[in-house]
């Protein structure tokens, strides 16, 4: 474990050096990324400018949901999102995945964390500020248990998204270019920006049970607010466990299918 954390640290440093080579672009990208985060808050402000409630959520609670989403988004885009969505297909296409296989590291670990995005890491500081703003302006009283449960569910959401992306990225071993799936994944994650309570009927069932995007932000936020059903949490835990096992099998199967594109 320590070895892998050390490697992530080295990846971060190397990538920061690479990205700082284009400083104006780096700083503009950081501005763009922080602006994008603020735009989500602005969207909710405009919605609440026109309505006092959104699917039963007050503004202070939706603020928690928004920063929960931004926390998850910041973590995945800094770490595995682009690595699996764009860089892995590129490695396979150019035949450079051979070098990954020859390294004394788990290929999935290397493929997922090879590039730690410094631009996203830098802009993530805004999320910390937004958390500070939440606790000083909106947060009511909460128990330690709800905080622990919140953090556990945040972790569960990350595992779900990682497993989903591993399955999506595995398709790159069969297709020439899988970047469209990466974009598709981004949009799926973005659906988690809004509370899943806005969906009704079949869509509600779909996003709660079949494809639980509720796990991205809605469920952790509800757990923090103390309005979550324990039976649903148990379902999500079992679902994520099985889903992770499936993704591992898909990845292993894809690796066996790999044949190099170069020498």
């Amino acid at each position: 474990m320590r070895k892998y954390l050390k490697i992530i640290w080295i990846f971060s440093k190397v990538n920061l050096q690479n990205e700082m080579a284009y400083r104006p672009s780096f700083f503009l990208a950081v501005i763009g990324k922080t602006t994008r985060m603020l735009i989500l808050i602005l969207v909710f402000q405009v919605i609440y400018f026109n309505t006092p409630l959104l699917a039963g959520w007050e503004y202070k609670d939706i603020f928690l949901l928004a920063i929960t989403y931004l926390t998850i988004e910041s973590i995945i885009i800094t770490t595995f999102h682009r690595n699996l969505s764009y860089y892995l297909p590129d490695l396979i296409k150019k035949g450079n995945f051979d070098f990954v296989l020859t390294k004394p590291l788990n290929p999935l670990f290397y493929s997922s964390f090879r590039i730690i995005d410094s631009m996203d890491l830098t802009s993530s500081f805004l999320v910390i500020f937004l958390w500070y703003h939440y606790f000083t302006h909106y947060a009511g009283t909460f128990s330690l248990l709800s905080l622990i449960l919140y953090l556990l569910l945040l972790g569960l959401g990350l595992i779900f998204l990682f497993s989903l992306l591993v399955i999506i990225a595995s398709s790159a071993f069969w297709t020439v270019n899988a970047t469209g799936l990466g974009r598709f994944f981004e949009e799926i994650v973005r659906t988690g920006r809004f509370p899943t309570d806005v969906f009704k009927g079949a869509f509600s069932f779909l996003f709660l049970y079949v494809f639980p995007i509720a796990l991205i932000a809605t469920v952790p936020s509800k757990a923090f607010l103390g309005t979550i059903d324990w039976r649903y949490l148990a379902y999500l835990a079992v679902f994520t466990f099985i889903f992770t096992l499936i993704s591992k099998r898909v990845w292993n199967h894809a690796l066996r299918h790999y044949s190099s594109a170069s020498s």
Partner: peptide, 11 residues
């Protein structure tokens, strides 16, 4: 004038 224009386009 710039090596990378991704930043401004992203903004």
């Amino acid at each position: 004038w710039m090596d990378q224009t991704w930043g401004p386009r992203f903004v």
